[in-house]
């Protein structure tokens, strides 16, 4: 018997009520994350990957709302929970880190305040014990002289250090799942690599599964076990990292891979995906990628169905680059 996944998202739909009517930011997204697994959630800006992350934490604010679907954390449906129940899970079993480390820590509160409140929100411990725990957590993410640093304000830290503090806070309670919303995008490349490997190590130690939201395929290649590619609020392809990156089925995935600079194609101009991501208010009928797709034809005006193939792979395309038969 296979163990129950830590997180299972089924047919999630998130809508935003705007002046121009209701926009569907997430349209029937399904995926799951196993215990200790790393799932890369890849897509361009506006593809809905960040909204998916926020929806898992129940942090979608009005005018947005989860319209339908379910989010099961260790078998419990988060979408049916009351806010108080959800609050007890946030920070404890479910954690999140954000893209810009310069803005995720409150600028007017000291680091120790922000760490200790995260501890005492879920544990009945003395202030002293909480402080000791906070100090150990800082030391663990590689912050030198953590005792002194606890009394500092966020602006006294560099960007990389702030992200480390955020990671330390997120992992304080050894959560079952950490949603990381592009936490390395705003950092220098060298710091990026350090943070990536540290999160990976820490998550493994704590047995924490990761949903790593990113637009950077090279990050996914180095970090994730499986990858889900999002486009205009839908997952268009999903599978193991090796399978998807080596043999992409969806033309969009292939386009993304083609636009990553590579040593093997030196001197050749980078290929680009023509056009831009469509506005959610003016989605083309059927496959949203069709207007930018070289393989599209009139049939692509219909909704492409989910096609499962190979080993635990799926795509949504009428004209996949890898056919089910070839992959099998």
């Amino acid at each position: 018997m296979t163990s129950q996944p830590i997180l299972e998202v089924r047919d999630l739909v998130v809508e935003f009520a705007t002046r121009d009517g209701v926009l569907t930011a997430i349209n029937g997204v399904s995926f799951h994350v196993d215990r200790g697994e790393v799932l890369g959630l890849v897509g361009e800006s506006g593809s809905g990957k960040s909204v998916t992350g926020l929806a898992i934490l129940g942090l979608i604010d009005a005018p947005g709302r989860i319209a339908s679907g379910s989010i099961l954390l260790e078998g419990e449906d988060l979408t049916r929970m009351r806010e108080a129940q959800l609050r007890r899970l946030r920070g404890k079993r479910l954690a999140m880190i954000f893209q810009d480390p310069m803005t995720t820590l409150n600028p007017v509160l000291r680091v120790d305040t922000q760490m200790i409140e995260a501890i005492t929100a879920h544990e009945k411990v003395s202030h002293k014990a909480a402080r000791a725990k906070a100090r150990d957590a800082l030391a663990k993410v590689g912050i030198p002289s953590p005792d002194e640093r606890l009394a500092s304000y966020p602006h006294q830290f560099s960007g990389g250090m702030r992200q480390r503090v955020a990671i330390a806070i997120a992992l304080l309670h050894r959560p079952a799942l950490l949603v990381a919303d592009e936490p390395t995008t705003a950092l220098d490349v060298t710091i990026q690599a350090q943070i990536l490997s540290e999160v990976q190590t820490l998550a493994q130690e704590a047995g924490t599964a990761l949903v790593w939201v990113t637009h950077d395929l090279s990050v996914v290649a180095g970090l994730a076990d499986r990858v889900a590619v999002m486009y205009a609020g839908r997952i268009v392809e999903q599978g193991s990292v090796a399978d998807v990156l080596e043999n992409p089925a969806h033309p969009y995935t292939a386009g993304l891979i083609g636009s990553v600079p590579s040593r093997n194609r030196r001197g050749v101009p980078l290929s680009q995906i023509p056009g831009m991501t469509p506005s959610l208010a003016k989605l083309p009928p059927g496959c949203a990628f069709a207007p930018r797709c070289a393989r599209a034809d009139a049939g692509c005006r219909n909704d492409p169905p989910v096609v499962a193939f190979g080993t635990a792979r799926m795509h949504r395309c009428f004209h996949p680059l890898v056919t089910a038969e070839a992959a099998a």
Partner: peptide
């Protein structure tokens, strides 16, 4: 602001998020 979102993601009560952060 992100720090309000982060404070909520830490599981803080609404009173603490509003009253302090």
């Amino acid at each position: 602001q992100d720090y309000v979102r982060f404070a909520r993601a830490k599981g803080l009560s609404q009173a603490r998020v509003i009253g302090v952060h």
